[in-house]
Lab assay of single mutants.
Amino acid sequence: MQIFVKTLTGKTITLEVEPSDTIENVKAKIQDKEGIPPDQQRLIFAGKQLEDGRTLSDYNIQKESTLHLVLR
Rank of each mutant, 00 (worst) to 15 (best):
N60E: 06
E24R: 10
K48T: 13
G47E: 13
V70C: 02
L67M: 05
D21T: 15
G47N: 14
A28W: 10
E34N: 04
E64L: 07
Q49V: 08
T12I: 07
T14V: 14
H68T: 08
Q62K: 09
E18R: 10
I36Y: 10
L50E: 00
I61R: 00
G10P: 04
L69F: 03
D39K: 09
Q40P: 03
K63G: 09
M1L: 08
A46M: 05
P19A: 12
A46Q: 12
K11G: 04
T66C: 02
T55M: 03
R42S: 11
K63W: 09
L50W: 01
G35C: 03
G53V: 13
A46K: 06
K33N: 08
L50N: 00
I36E: 03
Q2N: 11
N25F: 12
H68L: 06
R72L: 12
I30F: 03
L43S: 00
V70W: 05
G53A: 06
L8A: 14
S20K: 06
Y59G: 01
T22Q: 11
E34L: 06
L15G: 00
I13D: 01
G10V: 05
R72W: 08
K33C: 02
K6I: 15
K48V: 12
T55Q: 15
D52V: 15
R72C: 02
M1V: 07
L8F: 12
I30H: 00
N25S: 12
T9R: 12
K48Q: 15
P19W: 09
K29P: 00
G35Q: 11
H68K: 03
F4C: 02
L67Q: 01
A28N: 07
T9I: 11
I23P: 04
M1P: 02
E24G: 06
I44C: 03
S20I: 09
G35E: 05
E24W: 10
I3N: 00
S57T: 06
D32E: 08
E16C: 02
Q31S: 08
T66M: 11
S20W: 10
I3F: 01
N60H: 10
I30D: 00
E34K: 05
G47H: 09
L71D: 13
D21F: 10
R54F: 14
Y59T: 02
T55L: 10
H68W: 06
E18D: 15
I30T: 01
L8H: 13
I30V: 08
V17P: 01
E34R: 04
N60L: 06
D52F: 15
K6Y: 08
T7Q: 08
K48M: 13
F4W: 09
D32Y: 08
P37S: 15
I13Q: 03
D39P: 05
S65Q: 13
L43W: 01
L50V: 07
E51I: 08
T12D: 10
D21W: 12
A46E: 13
T22S: 13
V5Q: 00
A28Y: 09
L56F: 04
S65G: 10
L56V: 07
D58S: 12
L15R: 00
V17K: 00
E16Q: 11
G10R: 04
D52T: 05
G35N: 12
M1I: 04
K48L: 15
G47W: 15
L50H: 00
I30E: 00
K6F: 08
D32K: 07
D21R: 04
E51F: 07
L69V: 08
E16I: 13
D21L: 14
E64C: 02
L8R: 07
I36D: 03
E24I: 11
L56W: 01
I44W: 10
D58T: 05
F45S: 03
Q2R: 07
R72T: 15
F45M: 09
R72Y: 08
K63T: 07
L50C: 02
N25W: 06
Q62H: 11
L69P: 00
L15Q: 01
T12H: 15
K29D: 15
Q31V: 08
R72P: 10
G47V: 03
L15F: 07
Y59I: 03
T66I: 11
G10D: 09
E64W: 04
T66W: 07
G47I: 02
D21K: 03
D52E: 05
H68M: 04
T7A: 04
S20Y: 15
K11H: 15
E18M: 15
V5W: 01
T55N: 13
P19L: 13
E24Q: 13
D39V: 04
F45W: 10
T66G: 03
L67Y: 01
E34Q: 11
Q40V: 12
T7R: 07
T9S: 10
Q41K: 02
V5G: 01
T14D: 05
L8P: 10
I44K: 05
G35L: 09
T9Q: 15
R42T: 15
F45L: 10
G10A: 13
G10I: 04
S57C: 03
L8K: 10
L56K: 00
D52G: 07
K11V: 07
I3V: 13
I3G: 00
E51V: 08
I3W: 00
T9H: 14
P38W: 14
S65H: 09
G47S: 09
L69R: 01
G47D: 10
